Computed example of a mutant assay.
Amino acid sequence: MLSWLAVCCSGLLHINAAYKGPRWQFYLFKPLTILLMMLIALVGGEANVYTYLILVGLLFSLFGDVFLMLPKDRFIPGLLSFLIAHILYSVAFWQQFDGPMIWWLPSLIGAASVIVFLLLLPNLGPLLIPVGIYIAVIAQMAWGAGEFWMNAHSQTAAYAFGGALLFMVSDTVLAFERFKGPFRASVLLVMSTYFCAQGLITLSVMP
């Protein structure tokens, strides 16, 4: 419980610093929040392939966080880091799936992803292909987590699916902020859903 309290405090300090400063607090607490989740998964998670995939996914998320918050923006390396994280999460979720496919689920997720892509399309420019690939990867990650939950109906699967859906929300808001223009509540929306997504995915490794 105290470890999760530390995660919450760290995340809130980062969000607060994004609006009010100081800058050192902004740079420190974003990666620290993910690092704390990695430690929770490492200490409390089961020693299996699923946990290891989630841990490495968190590590690449940490790399992505650092790239995206650097004063000199490293958007492409950040995008690539999160792309790898989503692929690792996807492998973890699909490995847990064992049962009949629920075909309406990818239809809903795919339709939502296409709508987001079309709304962003006029502003993507040379990033059209990388962003399109990223949207496709995160959509199939959510699909994998959803199939896992629809078949297992376990708490672990519920955490995984909830985390994947929140990740989609976070990345969608981030994409609109970057390509359509910033708005005051964007940091709060992006980071609160992002930290909750990573927290739920971390919880999915707990026995």
Rank of each mutant, 00 (worst) to 15 (best):
P77L: 08
F26L: 06
L42P: 00
F63N: 10
L62N: 09
L62A: 11
S61C: 14
P71S: 11
L80D: 05
F67C: 14
L79Y: 04
F93Q: 05
F75P: 09
L35V: 14
R74N: 15
V91T: 11
L59D: 00
F63K: 08
L83N: 03
L70V: 06
W103P: 12
M101E: 11
F29H: 05
L53W: 04
P71N: 09
L79K: 08
P71E: 12
M37Y: 12
F93K: 03
D65M: 05
D73V: 13
D73H: 10
Y50W: 08
I34H: 04
F93M: 15
P100I: 09
F29Q: 02
F97V: 15
L28N: 01
K72P: 01
H86K: 01
F63C: 15
L59F: 15
L70Y: 08
I84L: 15
M101K: 12
L32I: 09
L32V: 13
L80Y: 06
L83S: 10
N48H: 12
P31I: 04
T33V: 04
L36E: 00
F82G: 01
W104E: 07
Y52I: 00
P100M: 10
S61K: 07
I76H: 05
M69I: 15
R74P: 00
M101G: 08
G99Y: 11
I84E: 05
L70E: 12
P77R: 09
Y50G: 00
I84G: 04
V49T: 15
Y89M: 06
L79I: 04
L58N: 03
A41P: 00
E46D: 12
K30P: 02
I102A: 13
D98M: 10
D65P: 03
L36V: 06
L42W: 14
V91S: 06
F26C: 02
F60S: 09
I87M: 14
